[in-house]
Design a binder for these strands. Structure first.
Lengths: 109, 109
DNA sequence: ACTGGTAGATAGTAACACTGAATAGCGGTC
DNA sequence: GACCGCTATTCAGTGTTACTATCTACCAGT
């Protein structure tokens, strides 16, 4: 995908995953697959799990272990109020950044 | 400004500075000041210089030393073709990311 | 001399995504 | 029943990045 995207994902991957969880609860493997479908073709397996561990440590999600028919038990993550607030803050920062970049993009081309 | 913005800037600050240089040539102190005016209230002094050094090492900019009336000589940075191409790639990645997040934002609120 | 504003450089730190590998359960095939 | 492929999670190590804090340096006005 290119190095630019890799660096750009720092700080936005968290928001991306939170946004996915805001739509509905999900587990790691599922989230990774969904990101891949949406065009983030080479997001590493392990990367998403690291994000989820951080969310759990920060108390942004509730975790539930659910047995799977096909493989080891899944850890299903659900956004809690703290996570929703964190996501709101993310959107605020994101909109600000978008607005500033938009301004420069118009002026500079 | 909040930790979210700090992490979000990793990968976008480069594009931000490149976009500023695309409008017109500038030197470090000037770029920092302009960013501050545009609402990036606490971007550290040194941070921009580090970005500019990276640009120079990657060959994205041309550098010219210009004596200043008020202080030590300025290093004026000008975007070269390689830098312009790098900036184009940045915009491509950015637009992609924006599109995906927009999709999630609509579906998840 | 001293202060304040301008201008740049640098060593050390923390956070984050990636790489690569390991572990583990289940279904199907040979 | 041994192997393979798919599902699912975990973890140690690496590179990149922005921040912090500090230092050097030049000039103007007091």
């Amino acid at each position: 995908m290119g190095k630019q995207m890799t660096e750009m994902l720092k700080g936005t991957l968290e928001g991306l995953v939170l946004a996915i969880l805001a739509v509905r609860s999900a587990y790691g493997y599922e989230i990774t697959a969904r990101l891949r479908e949406q065009g983030f073709s080479d997001i590493a397996e392990g990367t998403v799990y690291a994000v989820l561990v951080r969310f759990e440590q920060k108390g942004l999600v509730d975790v539930e272990k659910v047995p799977s028919e096909k493989g080891p038990p899944r850890k299903v993550y659900t956004l809690n109020p703290a996570g929703q607030q964190y996501l709101d803050e993310f959107w605020t920062s994101w909109r600000f950044l978008t607005a500033q970049l938009e301004k420069l993009h118009e002026g500079g081309s």
